[in-house]
Amino acid sequence: MLACVSRVRRETRRSALIGAILVVVLVGLGVITPGDPHTLEVDRGLSELGLPLPPSADSPLGTDHLGRDVLARIAAGASTSLGVATLATLLALSIGVAVGLIAGYAGGWVDRVLMRTVDLVLAFPFLLLAILLASLLRESGLTTSSAPVVLTLALAGWTTMARVIRTKTMTLARSELVIAARAIGASPLRIVVRHLLPNVASVVVVVAVLGFAQNILAESVLSYLGLGPPPPDPTWGRMLYEGRTFYRTAPHLVLAPGLAIVIAVIAFNLLAEGLRGLVAEDRADYR
């Protein structure tokens, strides 16, 4: 039994570690951005027939149909993706945490109204909501920024966070900790902010990292459909969409961005899984 527990611990630690390393690599790639993702190298970057070049010593991941370096574009795509996902996750988190805490602590009709709202938003098929919002915000003249994508992802993503945090808050709201705080006359606001929030923090972290993975995935889908962050900033989804027509002659144009998306999402999923294990372990130690 003991051996089994320590093995589970080792596994969760390992997945957290692998996830963390991959995340650091991705962030590093996004910050350093080796090479130039924008310049068209029509002379050097294309074959004599005007086709994309396969991977070589000059450009480790080859070039795209306009002769641009794919590695440089993947790196620039990392910074776009991570930036959008960070903003969207923070926005979704602030809505989700607020709604979850209020619904979980207040209970009664407040809880019912808030959770019914969550049900209604969840009843909307995610892609329908995303495509509608993205095209609505885009047509409203916000074309030059990533704001529409961020808003879309946040508005679609806060619901699951709110649900998880509400459940956690509900159990906490009945604990001695809250009863004691109420007994010494703490205001509801103080109880929520000073007593409940720190205690749900570990759950919030796990939910945030999971949401981050979902946001990267969803951003890539929106980009693939032409509703992502606008050019000239490269995104992995759009790179794959543009490379798709060349998949017979230049499969690296599909494989490179495809792998980038999968690795990035795996990284955050692993990190979330590891963190969840560590949180559970933490709690087990107190028992």
């Binding site: 890539s220 798709r244 494989l255 998306i261 999968v262």
Partner: peptide, 16 residues
């Protein structure tokens, strides 16, 4: 874990 981390257009294009 890998399958759940891949968007459908990546899986689809690779299968294609």
């Amino acid at each position: 874990l890998i399958a759940q981390s891949a968007p459908p257009f990546v899986i689809g294009t690779v299968l294609l």
